[in-house]
Design a protein around this nucleic acid. Structure first.
Lengths: 236, 236
DNA sequence: TATCGTCAGATTGACAGACAGGATGATCAG
DNA sequence: CTGATCATCCTGTCTGTCAATCTGACGATA
């Protein structure tokens, strides 16, 4: 079939979003609550999550909660021990290094593709996002930085043209959020981080995918160093 | 009255596995069944999966089935439409390209890390795996090829030292299994594929991470081309 | 006859309650 | 103080129920 011009259907099938059917699926709310509670540190790593308690806490039934748990589990935020139930995941230093490696590979891919296929308008939007990120860093407010960084990635991922990258990176980021808050709070790291991001942006502006790839990879590797250093018992 | 004989033994008649050391959780069995049914093409893309039917089919309750569905959903094999339930995912050409991009990035990462950190013994095991893969290709038996390829990846991933890569790549592979069967069945592709894998192995033997990275990436890019080419003519 | 509204059936989303079995922890005997 | 026994907690799973929603068919109307 070649692009049927929808003559048979006068209905504007093109761009009408689903009407607010998505008011509040209980399950998604539970998932979101669990994610937030874990990434914000409200539940600490290794802590046991008793189903009944969570049900009471959130006011949902066990089946609903368990479905949510399964989803959060496959995102890696919790681990289920047979006949014992779920506990909040504990990241070993090796896990942290692994996550950063993967994140580096995927973000570098995103930057490379962005440089290759994004529209000029998207490049411009990325430029704006970086500027706003700089402003956020200057305030020193971690929440603002997180928001600005999310905006930056939103533009980057959309422009990369890859349909599965966003979900993957979102998961990776969720798993290291606690650590990232640490690394973000380091002032001297902030300066370097911004420079590195600028380098990515410049490579993209010049439409140089390879350079964008390398710059992005370098950025994550530096972030990884800081995060891992904050873990190591280097001083003892 | 259905009265399934579940007084004390779930007893799958024709399934004589090892003695019941492992209390095979119903849920994991269901997940495995769903994965297999989807990746093997038993359920076709777009097909609706009605909960009750699946329950009857597998002999489990709805809550158990739903938990399994949530997990399979977050692996990307099915998509849930609100108030309609799950359908088997349909991959657009863009999705396929995206998955191959990600897979390429991750496998290249694995090869690079393997070259950098694997033990000599692991390198030797990889060598063996490649040899066996060659043998499998020569038989032309797709099942054998799949098994040999899995063995190859098992060695590669273990030696890469990355703890989260295996799960990610397993998911990626599951999502394109149907297509991979197509690409694997192409005889002339087989020859090239083997050469590419040999190149990866050689780079690893020389402990050259960068070369391993590039060789691996090249391998996936070629596979991607074949897979995408097999899609183009019929679609659109 | 074609379009539209209505209604019934089919299914999902969600909940409550129940029960067996594995795991834990505390109590009691040696 | 150590080891065995038992009560208890909690998971894994099942059955049954109910409202909300989607779909498709039927019939009414212009």
């Amino acid at each position: 079939m070649k692009n049927p011009p929808t003559v048979s259907r006068p209905a504007n099938a093109a761009n009408i979003k689903r009407v607010a059917t998505v008011a509040a699926p209980v399950r998604s709310q539970v998932i979101e609550m669990l994610r937030t509670a874990i990434t914000s540190g409200q539940f600490s790593p290794g802590q046991r999550l008793v189903e009944k308690d969570l049900c009471d806490m959130m006011g949902v039934s066990r089946p609903s909660l368990r479905e949510a748990l399964r989803q959060v589990e496959s995102e890696g935020l919790i681990v289920t021990i047979p006949n014992r139930g779920p506990i909040v995941s504990q990241l070993s230093p090796r896990d942290v290094a692994s996550i950063y490696e993967v994140r580096g590979a995927l973000e570098a891919l995103a930057a490379e593709r962005f440089a290759a296929v994004a529209s000029d308008e998207q490049v411009a939007r990325l430029d704006v996002a970086v500027t706003e990120l700089e402003a956020a860093y200057k305030t020193g407010d971690i929440e603002k930085i997180v928001v600005a960084k999310r905006a930056f990635y939103d533009v980057m991922l959309e422009g990369s043209g890859n349909s599965i990258l966003p979900a993957l990176l979102r998961t990776m980021n969720a798993r290291i959020t606690q650590l990232r808050r640490v690394s973000l709070s380091s002032p001297e790291r902030a300066v370097n981080s911004l420079q590195e991001i600028r380098a990515v942006l410049n490579a993209i502006k010049q439409r140089d995918p390879e350079a964008a790839f390398k710059a992005s990879l370098h950025h994550i590797k530096e972030a990884s160093k800081v995060a891992l250093a904050s873990l190591e018992p280097s001083s003892r």
